[in-house]
Design a protein around this nucleic acid. Structure first.
Length: 201
DNA sequence: TACATGATGCCCT
DNA sequence: GGGCATCATGTAG
């Protein structure tokens, strides 16, 4: 009997981003592309808090760009960075409170050919890490853009992008400093599945 | 209207 | 291991 990949409910995200981060590891990111289903295991995330976190986009207050972070939980916050890359986040905490989680790396489970195509690389890679290891890479593999996905409800069965629990539980979780930031760089808010090959760096 | 900045990845040594 | 492409956003003027 094949398990159905039901979207995690809003309540899952309606908590402190640090707790959600921990529970997000091992879950499955799902994208429906026409008849195809892209699936990948979440192996690396970073928590971004609200006003008290200088590294968070929400730190400077609510703007048109970061509006989603202040909205209801379980929504996709997609932003464009360095003129090249999109990054996928999910909003946490109740409506009115800012907080989010950045997806940094996932492990491909199915739809690998579609991911390779989206990334513009050969389907028979010797190393699948090139597909989804890194925030910009995994966003590209899943065809995620701000225009298409920002503010999308990841808890709705009607969405073409969501996160599900297939029963998998990571053996061991590690917490480290966040990557690629200058402010509050020392805060341990990066959560990874220990010894997973698809964790970036 | 102009400018500095950045939650990155690629390509070259 | 280091430089660089490239542009949306926010803030200043």
């Amino acid at each position: 009997m094949k398990k159905k990949l039901i979207p995690l409910p809003p309540g899952f995200y309606d908590r402190d981003p640090r707790n959600v981060s921990r529970d997000l590891l091992g879950k499955v990111l799902v994208r429906r592309e026409g008849r195809k289903l892209l699936k990948a295991r979440v192996v690396e995330v970073e928590a971004y808090l609200g006003a008290g976190d200088p590294a968070a986009h929400a730190a400077a207050g609510r703007t048109a760009r970061n509006d989603v972070l202040f909205g209801p939980p379980g929504r996709a916050y997609v932003y464009f960075i360095y003129g090249n890359h999109y990054c996928l986040n999910v909003s946490c905490l109740p409506d009115g409170a800012a907080g989010g989680i950045l997806f940094r790396a996932v492990e491909p489970m199915s739809g690998i050919e579609e991911m390779a195509k989206a990334r513009g690389v050969s389907a028979n890679l010797h190393d699948l890490r090139l597909l989804t290891s890194g925030p910009g890479r995994m966003a590209e593999a899943f065809g995620i853009t701000r225009q298409r996905d920002n503010a999308k409800d990841l808890t709705s069965a009607k969405s073409d992008l969501w996160i599900a629990d297939d029963g998998y539980r990571p053996d061991h979780i590690e917490v480290t400093k966040r990557i690629g930031i200058t402010k509050a760089a020392e805060m341990p808010l990066r959560y990874i599945i220990a010894d997973n090959r698809f964790v970036s760096r």
